[in-house]
Amino acid sequence: MRELLSYDVIVSVENTVAWLAKRRKSDRPLFVFKSHGAGDRDVAWHPRIAEFDLLLPHGTKTAERYVEQGLGQPAAIRTTGYLKTDVTERLREGQQALFDTARPTVIYNPHKDRKQSSWRQAIEPMLDQFAGQDIFNLIVAPHVKMFRRRSASARQRWENRSTDSILIDTCSDRLLDNSYTVAADIYIGDVSSQVYEFTARPRPCVFLNFNKIDWRDNPNYLFWQMGEVIEDPAEIFAAVARARDLHPQYIEIQKKLTSDALGDDIRDGAEYAADAIVDYYRHGRTLRD
């Protein structure tokens, strides 16, 4: 802890480092929070965020919520865009095919949160429905922490269920670097913020509300406005099959919500963030009070 507190600036993508900010005895170091996701879940507004000096949300949605929740003042909030999109755009340029047979590709991207994840209800019906068809390829790409505490053999058992048209990944870097959201044509998910990485290029989405959440008019489920929401696991394949026909009615709301979440600039986000940190360190710290 002593070494960390000797630095001038500490940048974190997790709010848990706030405990360290409480232990400084002066204005040094400057604590900067750059969240790693862009979702709508209430975890994005954790009270610990108020301990940071400078907040760097991706877009206006998060900046406004920070102020509404009393987590920061406008003078100490700078929108910088979504840093991962720098990588995403480059990946698109040289990405190799994930399947031998070219078909429209579906990504299933369940969250790890047991209370909100669709994994337990969805995975077996989904694999059954996609196994008996030759229309789509399927990528099963769960939250990177879902299998973090599972044994290597357990992860391997799932990955061994991959086929020529179904790719199951439990732990590779592709779960993090947007390889799958770039490659896919249709998104299936629940509450993962990766949906906004997918809709950076508007494409069809299907959302799984198997926990029967009352989501309408709930700001923590804004992204469920970007596609059809279903509540029956037996309907997964049918919803995917009609997603492309339904997509035109969701394109404009996808553009609006994605811009609010990620910002308008999809390149050079890292440069914007670095400039904001340097500027605030040199000129803005007196504005915190």
Rank of each mutant, 00 (worst) to 15 (best):
I230D: 07
I230M: 04
I230N: 07
I230T: 02
I230G: 06
E231W: 06
D232G: 07
D232Q: 10
D232P: 08
P233Y: 12
P233D: 12
P233W: 08
P233A: 13
A234G: 14
A234Y: 14
A234M: 14
A234T: 14
A234V: 15
A234D: 15
E235V: 14
I236V: 11
I236H: 05
F237L: 15
F237M: 11
A238D: 15
A238E: 14
A239E: 10
A239L: 10
V240E: 03
V240R: 12
A241Q: 09
R242I: 11
R242V: 15
R242H: 08
A243D: 02
A243C: 04
A243E: 05
A243N: 10
R244L: 01
D245P: 01
D245G: 00
H247D: 15
H247Q: 13
H247Y: 09
H247S: 10
H247M: 08
H247T: 07
P248Q: 01
P248F: 00
P248L: 02
P248K: 02
P248I: 02
Q249L: 05
Q249S: 13
Q249R: 08
Q249A: 09
Y250L: 03
Y250D: 11
Y250F: 07
E252D: 15
I253F: 07
I253H: 12
I253G: 03
I253L: 11
Q254F: 06
Q254A: 07
Q254V: 05
Q254W: 09
K255F: 12
K256L: 14
K256W: 15
K256S: 14
L257G: 11
T258M: 09
S259P: 14
S259M: 13
D260H: 07
D260C: 08
A261Q: 13
A261Y: 03
A261G: 06
A261T: 05
A261C: 08
L262T: 08
L262K: 07
G263E: 04
G263A: 04
G263T: 04
D265I: 05
D265Q: 07
D265G: 03
D265N: 08
I266K: 13
I266T: 13
R267T: 11
R267H: 02
R267Y: 05
R267C: 04
D268Q: 11
D268A: 09
D268L: 12
G269V: 09
G269T: 07
G269H: 05
G269N: 13
A270D: 02
A270Y: 00
E271P: 04
Y272E: 00
Y272H: 10
A273N: 02
A273F: 00
A274L: 01
D275E: 08
D275Y: 01
D275L: 04
D275V: 08
D275Q: 08
D275K: 10
V278L: 06
V278K: 03
D279K: 06
D279I: 05
Y280F: 10
Y281Q: 06
Y281E: 13
Y281M: 10
